[in-house]
Nucleic acid binder design. Structure first.
Length: 1030
RNA sequence: GCGCGGUUAGCUCAGUGGUAGAGCAUUACCUUGACACGGUAGGGGUCACAGGUUCGAACCCUGUAUCGCGCACCA
């Protein structure tokens, strides 16, 4: 047994053992093993990412679960890998390209650019993997996967073709979330709503007849003045605001218009909103058309996006709105672009239920090309689309001469100025609304009509049921509600991305005009190939055919010409078919798939799917998934659906195809102020730096101790420091044992067990139970806290100190000179007990070897080191702890046989607790008497019932007393401090210890000081002018 | 708007009906046989607020306030 150093030095230990584990293949899962399986798939980090605290939390938990399962005798597969992370990685490489070569990806071309990304991946892809290794993660690295591996890519393509065949994947022209920065469509999940401070603009337009002539015969309230072109901007708005909503203005009379039919306004009683503070009609009737001196009718429209006015193709009001309903069918003159001829500025006023007449002015400008709701209105009313914003967020030519080419935000300002010049701007007031942002690029998204691929989710109902019915458990289970809600309101998934880095959509397409020759010959040929088993599926789109499931496939191009299209989805490895298609003029879709369209296959695509491999048979469904709740929709829900869809087929013979049995949602790591860790804030510590400063075990322990189930974690480096201190304590406790020498793990003789021995054994038993239960319930912070308490407070603070009573220094025989015992024979008995010493060491070894094993999942490195240094490995079977602690059996709570054999009963705890309580109170006597800790004192104990010599020695030691006199007849001098407890009465005779006069002075001074303080505070409080400083 | 979570010591948080807990910070003393990354003792709480249930409430119920998160959003 080598002497171990005074302080634990993690650096010299960690690499050594990690290499050892790797060399010995300790992490490698054997799919042929007879042991019961335990499996986890790692949430694959971004291949070019860096380890952050979220990873530390997440992967430490997975490692704890894996290591615990190994100790439980399970065959463990923790399957690691990385994600290609389409947008993030592409953006990173593009950024570098721009910085170093001042080029865009288009300058390089697709092929060359992809070469660069692969090179980047090769260079940086290992970083995060190595960081995980530093943390101690026991992943089976022989099975590491990457979402763009050849095999994995084939899974993605197969899945695409399969779903396409089922009609679940379709191409459609839809409003999508468009990111102008990365210039790609995004899924709804990639859009983050953020409150933004902006302005609500009210502008006025003239209502006219369809031929452009003024509307006649409509009364209205008088026109409010517009904001003058030269007016100062901000301050005036509030003044105009007052005039803009005159509650006293008489209501608009809905007079029949000559030549048009009469519209009867609904009775005011039918208007649900008309009650409330408005006292009837006034509240409802505010706003409405205004009439100018020449009798022209004006409508005021509220908008936050005046730059889209050139894209407006209608103005909508609610047909039930009495203020406006009579104007439906009239037109308005759209103010922008100004240069258009009058007749091209006319857009209709339409009635649509979507319009909320309580909001804004009750008049909605409809921009079908740039707003999702407006697009729907446009579809209902067959409105034309005018695209005024380009893909990059700049204004198009259709936006007019004033706005053309401007960035959308700059255009907003210019549009406002134009309205002001035209004296149409009525109001401009600060306004806060939610704006969708691209999560990746952090710029506002632009709703944009574009042709994309969509997926109608498969297996939705089954996926819902498995969680609601409890076959798959969420921890904490409140996430089940969130999951269920999302699945209930699920929308089709936009899966195409206008990027280059990712899985290219395996569809070859040819378009032809409706008049061109048909594709039937080719279809027959392809069908023949299909019969031979090739992965291929085709869809023919004709102007009038509507494929089942392929809803909303518009068979018109931008010019409204009908066309025919043949889409052929085919496995890209079918080179013959592809070259045939290309000869026919087919081209592959240029888009790639959303990254999550590959990650949703992770639990089985990493295990050899679509073959029914041994690995799948052994390890699917996986046991646990550990992830953050922020990707519950992105990843977890989709994986469940994919699991049911693709693992539910008979060949896998699974009773339930769900991908995991338990999902553990971690908290989110935040900084001390509660902010999310982010690169821009720079508040995220580098875990590798922490590891080098404190050790990986310390980082793990600190993180676990402060991460309760389901709560966010405020990270504080102090927690890591605590972890380091703890490791050092563990180290030194072992060092203390080692310094005692003697036989390692000798046999425990039940006859020689002291009360303290029994006490610690019972406490150990309780700790084993507590930790095991906590781990089974995924309560890692509770498990950690229990271990901490047991080891530090119970074992070190009490047991080790008490054990010194039987472990004399330097191996001398017990020196009990200062303990006055009842009889000489008991002294003899006590003194001679070298067997007792050996027995104490045996108990220590027993406790330590169990404790170290319980700590191993949390602190893999230091426990492995100690396991060997303490030689606890030596009498274990080779594959159960002999070689490594990783496979040592997890401690079991004591059974009845064990307890009977050692005479352990829970009732014994009480007496020892009483003894320790006596000690605590005895120590306090010292402080009460102001006696320095270093000063040797003598206590006198008057026992209530006979005290064993061993207990007397323990009490003396723990009191740090020079002597403990046990005397049943002790008569203390008057004023001797004492405590009276169940075990007896303890005295601290003061003679010679304190200078009574000096002590009197000290105490008097203290009292005076306190009184002065009281007087000061009272004086303050009595002062009526006294206020607390804030 | 709907849903979820939080509110307990100076800070970060445990605590599912029976005497309010931990770590850090803080005060005093101590380098006493492993550990100063340590030891001993202490100070510090109206458990957000208001009702209710109960012999008994931090805990259960109702409501309020407040902070945070998610979803959906109206120009």
């Amino acid at each position: 047994m080598n002497e171990i150093s005074k302080a634990y030095e993690p650096q010299s230990v960690e690499d050594k053992w990690y290499d050892f584990w790797l060399k010995q293949g300790c992490f490698t899962a054997n799919e042929k093993s007879a042991k019961p399986a335990y499996s986890i798939v790692i949430p694959p980090p971004n291949v070019t990412g860096m380890l952050h605290m979220g990873h530390v939390l997440n992967n430490t938990i997975q490692d704890i679960l894996s290591r615990k399962a190994r100790m439980d005798g399970k065959e463990v597969l923790w399957l690691p890998g990385t994600d290609h992370a389409g947008i993030a990685t592409q953006m990173m490489v593009e950024k570098q390209l721009k910085k170093e070569e001042k080029k865009s990806r288009h300058d390089l071309g697709r092929e060359e650019f992809l070469k660069r990304v692969w090179a980047w991946k090769e260079k940086h892809g290992d970083i995060i993997i190595n960081q995980l290794k530093k943390l101690g993660c026991s992943c089976d690295w022989t099975r590491e996967r990457f979402t763009m591996d050849e095999e994995y890519s084939r899974c993605v393509q197969k899945v695409f073709v399969e779903l396409y065949k089922q009609g679940l994947i379709y191409r459609g022209k839809r409003m999508v979330n468009w990111c102008p920065a990365s210039q790609t469509a995004l899924s709804d999940e990639e859009v983050e709503m953020k409150p933004q401070r902006g302005f609500m603009y009210h502008f006025r337009v003239e209502a006219v007849e369809a031929d452009g002539s003024p509307v006649k015969g409509v009364s209205g309230r008088p026109l409010t003045p517009a904001l003058s072109p030269k007016g100062s901007e901000g301050e005036k708005s509030s003044a105009t605001n007052a005039t803009a909503s005159p509650a006293s203005t008489p209501q608009v009379n809905v007079a029949p218009i000559a030549g048009s039919k009469t519209i009867n306004p609904p009775a005011s009683g039918s208007l649900s909103h008309s009650g409330g503070e408005g006292q009837g009609e006034g509240a409802v009737q505010k706003g409405g058309p205004e009439i100018d001196s020449q009798g022209r009718i004006w409508l005021t429209i509220a908008t936050t996006r005046p730059e889209t006015i050139p894209g407006d193709t209608a103005v909508a009001v609610n047909p039930k709105d009495p203020r406006y309903a009579h104007l439906i069918g009239k037109h308005i003159i759209r103010p922008l672009p100004v240069e258009l001829p009058h007749e091209q500025k006319l857009i209709p006023i339409i009635g649509d239920e979507h319009v909320d007449f309580e909001f804004g002015t009750g008049v909605l400008k409809v921009t079908p090309a740039h707003d999702k709701a407006d697009f729907d209105i446009g579809t209902r009313h067959k409105l034309p689309l005018i695209e005024v914003i380009n893909a990059d967020g700049s204004m198009s030519d259709l936006a007019g001469a004033d706005l053309r080419g401007l960035d959308r935000f700059k255009a907003r300002k210019v549009a406002v100025e134009k309205l002001r010049e035209l004296e149409m701007l009525v109001e401009e007031k600060p306004y806060e609304n939610n704006v969708g942002f691209s999560q990746r690029a952090d710029v506002p998204i632009e709703p944009r009509l574009s042709e994309q691929w969509f997926l109608k989710y498969p297996a939705v109902e089954t996926s819902k049921a498995c969680v609601t019915e409890g076959r798959m458990k969420f921890h904490p289970d409140r996430w089940a509600k969130v999951y269920d809600h999302w699945l209930t309101n699920i929308q089709d998934w936009c899966i195409s991305r206008q990027l280059w880095w990712g899985h290219r959509i395996p569809v070859w397409t040819k378009k032809a005009s409706a008049a061109s020759p048909d594709f039937s010959a080719l279809q027959t040929q392809l069908n023949g190939i299909k019969q031979s088993g090739a992965l291929i599926h085709m869809n023919l789109y004709t102007p009038h055919a509507k494929k089942e499931g392929a809803t909303n496939v518009l068979q018109q191009d931008a010019q409204e010409n009908y066309f025919i299209r043949l889409d052929v989805a085919v496995d890209p490895t079918e080179e013959k078919i592809i070259s045939m298609l290309e000869q026919h003029g087919f081209t592959q879709d240029t888009d790639v798939l959303d990254t999550w369209f590959s990650s949703w296959l992770w639990p089985f695509a990493t295990m050899g799917w679509p073959e029914s491999t041994e690995t799948l048979k052994k390890f699917y469904p996986t046991t646990d998934l550990v992830t953050g709740p922020d990707i519950i929709f992105f990843w977890v829900a989709r994986m469940i659906m994919a699991g049911y869809e693709f693992m539910g087929t008979p060949q896998f013979g699974l009773p339930d195809a769900m991908p995991f049995q338990n999902v553990y949602f971690t908290g989110i790591i935040r900084d001390k102020q509660g902010r999310k860790m982010s690169k821009t804030l720079g508040n995220s510590p580098d875990p590798l730096v922490l590891i080098s400063q404190y050790g990986a075990d310390a980082l793990r322990f600190g993180t676990m101790r402060s991460a309760p189930l389901g709560q966010d974690v405020l990270f504080d480096e102090k927690d890591v420091e605590l972890g380091r201190n703890f490791c050092n304590k563990l180290w030194n406790a072992c060092r203390f044992r080692q310094m005692q020498g003697g036989e390692v793990q000798g046999e425990i003789d039940p006859q020689l067990l002291t009360a303290d021995d029994k006490w610690i054994l019972l406490k150990l038993d309780a700790a084993i139970r507590e930790v095991s239960i906590a781990l089974n319930e995924y309560k890692f912070s509770e498990a950690t806290a229990a271990l901490y308490r047991f080891f530090w407070n119970e074992y070190c603070d009490w047991y080790v100190e008490a054990s010194k009573a039987t472990l004399p220094r330097g191996g001398d025989s017990l020196n009990s000179e200062n303990v006055k015992l009842e009889t000489d024979s008991t002294i003899q008995q006590f003194n001679d007990s070298t067997a007792r010493k050996a027995n104490t060491l045996a108990v220590i070894d027993f406790v330590l070897s169990h404790t170290i094993r319980m700590f191993h999942p949390f602190l893999p490195f230091i426990t492995e080191e100690l396991w060997h240094a303490m030689a606890y490995s030596t009498d274990m079977p080779e594959n159960q702890g002999g070689k490594t602690i990783m496979f040592a059996p997890w401690p079991m709570p004591f059974d009845d046989d064990f307890k009977n054999h050692y005479g352990l009963e829970n009732t014994q705890l009480e007496a020892t607790n009483a003894k320790y309580d006596l000690v605590k109170q005895g120590r306090d006597l010292r402080r009460a008497g102001n006696i320095q800790a270093a000063k040797k004192v003598k206590y006198v104990f008057k026992p209530a019932s006979p005290l064993s010599p061993h207990d007397a020695e323990v009490i003396k030691l723990l009191l740090n007393a020079e002597a403990l006199e046990v005397d049943v007849h002790y008569a203390p001098p008057k004023g001797t401090p004492s405590v009276n407890l169940s075990l007896g009465e303890l005295f601290l005779p003061l003679e010679g210890l304190i200078d009574v006069a000096a002590e009197k002075i000290r105490l008097t001074k203290e009292v005076e000081k306190d009184q002065a303080e009281i007087a000061k505070v009272e004086q303050k409080l009595a002062n009526p002018n006294f206020t607390q400083k804030v």
